Simulated assay, not measured.
Amino acid sequence: MNPLLGAEQAVLGSVLLDPEQLLHLSWLAPDHFYRPVHQALFAALRKLRSDGHLALRSEKAVPLSWVTDAVDEASRHVRGLTASYAHTLVAACPRPAHAPVYGRMVLEGAIHRSVSEHAIRLHQSARADALQGEVEGVLHCADVLTGVLSDLAGRWGSEPRPVAPAAPPATAPVAPAPVRSAQVAEDERFLLAVLTDRPRAMDEVVGWLRPVDFADTAHGQLYRCLGALHHRGEPIDRITVLWEAQRRGLLADGTLSGEQLTAICDGVGPGSAEWLGEQVMRSSVTRTAAGSARAIRALAENEALAPGRLINHALHALGPLDDVRARWQSANSRPVASPTVDWSAAGPPTSRVQAALARSTPRPVRAPSERRGSVPVPASARSPSRGHG
């Protein structure tokens, strides 16, 4: 049996056997379940409890109506649920008192699934924006993913902070073919040609454009040479750039060649270095976002990775995108809006965190007088696990 499926069945079975277990599962939501029928049934059980079902006032055995009414309520929202399946769920629960631990297993699966889904959306948005030459969509998806990671960390009860993984994912997805690679390479060559022909144009881009923003490694190294000459206040032309490339060993290791430099510098026409730099930055934003999304998806698909570590490693994978985003906003003279979240204010109440970290030891049940819609009954009259009468 699939462990996640077994955990979902055990949670539902424990609540069907003992409605009091819902008190320990307030932090678990219906959408944390993978199967739609399980989502509908857990939502129905929560609704029956909020409505003050008769089973909550039963002093002895749980009435069979608790099961049948839950199936009837869930059947209004999903097809295929029968009373016989409800009894299958009851049989799948080893011990009703272990419901909080079964719930943690369900939540763990939901965290992996949610992180993977949002990473896929980020990657798709990056590809779409790259085709359109935009960045707004991918930056919005990055903000959504950051918020999701914050919420999941609060539900799991861990401290969200970027932490680098000890080693890259063993089965990282293969990167897809670059989007609009020919146009991006042309923009990069044109920008380098303008900067070589008009050295003063370096002032327009040097504050926010970095070598890593170039898709072509050779172009990035050539821009590094231009930046070094500009920083030292030395003249910039075809010969000085070629000499700087030789001093850095770029000619010896084959990164650059004299023919490549000549091809870039020949035939340059009028152009705006700032506008071309922004085009390169757009490509860098979407390319970096796609790389972060692939890394996060690979982490989420590692079932052996604990949820707390998954969340922290995912936040670390978003770091390069945060850096490119800040420089992109600087290039457009917009105030830098940090995509991070105030971790101290995020997450559910402490009681939910404690419930999420519950172990198999049965928790004390609240006095019946504290439950809404219940009749005061001595706590000793109830058993942690009851059968159906």
Rank of each mutant, 00 (worst) to 15 (best):
G6L: 14
A7M: 11
L12R: 01
G13A: 05
L16V: 03
L17E: 09
D18E: 15
P19G: 12
Q21M: 15
L25T: 01
F33N: 15
P36D: 01
A43R: 04
R49E: 12
R49G: 00
H53N: 05
A55Q: 13
E59P: 04
V62I: 15
L64W: 10
S65E: 14
A70W: 05
A74N: 00
S75Q: 09
R76V: 04
V78K: 01
R79S: 14
R79Q: 13
R79K: 14
A91Q: 12
C93H: 04
C93A: 15
A97C: 13
M105F: 03
M105N: 00
I111Q: 00
I111W: 00
R113E: 05
S114A: 13
S116N: 07
I120Y: 06
R121H: 10
H123I: 04
A126H: 11
E134F: 06
H140K: 12
C141R: 08
T146C: 01
E159G: 06
E159D: 10
A164Y: 01
P165D: 13
A166W: 08
T171K: 08
A175H: 11
A175K: 13
A177S: 11
P178N: 10
E188S: 08
F190C: 06
L192C: 04
A193E: 01
A193P: 02
T196P: 00
R198P: 01
M202C: 11
M202A: 07
D203Q: 12
E204T: 06
E204G: 01
A215D: 13
D216H: 08
T217E: 15
T217F: 10
G220T: 02
Q221L: 15
R224A: 15
A228M: 13
E234C: 06
P235Y: 08
V241Q: 02
L242H: 02
W243N: 11
G249I: 15
I264L: 05
I264K: 02
G269I: 04
G271I: 07
A273Y: 06
G277P: 09
E278F: 01
R282Y: 05
A300L: 09
N302Y: 05
E303N: 01
A306D: 06
G308A: 10
I311A: 00
P320R: 07
P320S: 07
L321A: 06
D322S: 13
D323Y: 05
A326H: 02
A337P: 02
S338W: 09
V341W: 04
D342G: 03
A345L: 11
S351Y: 03
R352W: 12
Q354K: 13
L357E: 03
A358S: 14
R359E: 03
S360I: 13
P364S: 10
S369L: 11
E370Q: 10
S374H: 04
P378Y: 04
S380I: 15
G389R: 15
